[in-house]
């Protein structure tokens, strides 16, 4: 994979991680966390671990975002801190 894309994905991982912690809106935090997972999936792919990348894309970016959205929908959307 082209190293510029790898570097961009790596920077996006860090940016998304910080943004997900700092977001006051839990809905957007969950979505940003999904982007984080997908960028991690790109990283696994760049390292040649296709199986791990597949799992990360399906579980991390896909279903866990949906489960978090379901939980946020039933609790509160704003964080207290």
């Amino acid at each position: 994979m082209i190293w510029e894309i790898k570097l961009l994905a790596l920077i996006l991982v860090i940016v998304c991680a910080i943004a997900a912690i700092n977001a006051k809106d839990l809905l957007s935090a969950a979505v940003i966390f999904g982007i984080y997972s997908f960028m991690m999936c790109v990283q696994w792919l760049a390292m040649g671990a296709v199986d791990v990348a597949f799992t990360e894309a399906a579980i991390g970016a896909g279903i866990s975002t949906a489960l978090m959205l379901a939980a946020i929908f039933r609790t509160s959307r704003r964080t207290k801190d």
Partner: peptide, 16 residues
């Protein structure tokens, strides 16, 4: 690449 875990998650995602 793939298998039961990933395929099962994709299948569950369709129901979600």
């Amino acid at each position: 690449p793939g298998g039961g875990f990933q395929g099962g998650v994709i299948f569950a995602a369709s129901y979600v």
